[in-house]
Design a protein around this nucleic acid. Structure first.
Lengths: 201, 201
DNA sequence: TCGGCGAGCATACGGCGTAAACAAGGACTG
DNA sequence: CAGTCCTTGTTTACGCCGTATGCTCGCCGA
């Protein structure tokens, strides 16, 4: 994304964009805001009836965003939030306020609520960032080696690098399987279980 | 980082760098490789005696890298690894081979080993990326609002945005507390526990 | 002494973000 | 209707960026 290329795509000169945004940074910030727009409201309106259900709903909502915009999601994660004590991808005060209010409403004390917020955001970042990066990387890249003169390519670069790594070789298929959804569900379930144990202490 | 600024820092013109690296991308790739250099060997030499201890050692080793180079670590995470079925931050075949071999050696079947690899990498990305981003963001940024004419700034931007968010306001102190180390240890412990349960089934 | 060669330099090209001045039209006001 | 502004977009320019190309030197072996 560049101002000039975006302008070209809109049939307009780059400088015309500056009538509407105050600069590139502002534009990217607006993209992030758009992606997360209405999140707090949707979560509010979902009418969940337990903190587990609440966090599940919120997690799936964020995952939807990530999968709908896999190439924009890293922006949500890497951009510094409004204040240093918020963390991506739950980076606006409304959403965090709602989360903390909800957890408190279900009996969490302050420490548990904040710990849950932190663990929850870390979980989302870890799973979703890797998931969208897997979904994005083959779209661009490749660099087109052109295959000019060299005769047979053994098996892409795979077979060459993987010599002397029998376990990797054996599990290669399994490693490249996309089980993003199940991994996410299982990881989320485990996270909720461990929060549950921490709360009941 | 730009080629020109790096050259300036080395007392040399930018183009001189091209005698040693083939371009900016190569240079960044080399930085990542350097950060993770010898990881597999160190893990091998550690002589751990259980898979739990092994993963703990590996996790701490990676965390050390992240904390030693907080502004370079996002590079490790965001750069596409050599092959699509590897995931940051465990992105070289040697390390992954050693991990899978070790887990297999402790009785993991293929599915458990691969699931563990995926969960482990997600955990590392989630925790460490947010931790280094917290440690980095106040170094630059700030934009220097200069405080030109306006008289009293109430309490930085904090108090203004946080109106109507009583929970956030109340837990602000706790939210900004840096408990990175404890969070990491607890999260890691929990991850190991849940892997243990999955394995013993 | 001389030729080659490796390290660094100078220049140049196209692309980037964006500041500043300008132009064209459309909408209001008299 | 004329005259004014206000909105929208363009043009030009500046200083960055990565990097392709070609040059200059000083050193080192023959």
């Amino acid at each position: 994304m560049s101002m000039r290329s975006l302008g070209r795509e809109l049939g307009v000169e780059a400088m015309a964009l500056y009538r509407y945004v105050s600069g590139r940074e502002d534009l990217l910030e607006a993209v992030v805001a758009r992606l997360l727009d209405g999140l707090a409201e949707r979560v509010e309106a979902a009418g969940t009836t337990s903190w587990q259900e609440y966090l599940q709903y919120l997690a799936h909502e964020i995952r939807d965003v990530a999968l709908r915009h896999p190439s924009a999601f890293p922006l949500v994660v890497s951009r510094h939030p409004a204040t240093p004590w918020l963390r991506p991808p739950l980076r606006d005060i409304d959403t965090v306020e709602h989360l903390l209010a909800t957890l408190t409403g279900y009996g969490f004390d302050e420490e548990r609520a904040v710990d849950t917020y932190k663990a929850f955001t870390s979980f989302l970042v870890g799973y979703l960032l890797l998931e969208v990066s897997m979904r994005t990387e083959n779209v661009s890249a490749v660099e087109e080696p052109m295959n000019e003169g060299s005769a047979q390519i053994p098996e892409q670069d795979t077979a060459t690098d993987v010599q002397g790594a029998p376990h990797v070789l054996r599990m290669r298929e399994r490693l490249s399987q996309d089980r993003g959804a199940e991994e996410f569900e299982i990881g989320l379930e485990m996270l909720l279980n461990r929060i549950e144990r921490a709360v009941s202490v």
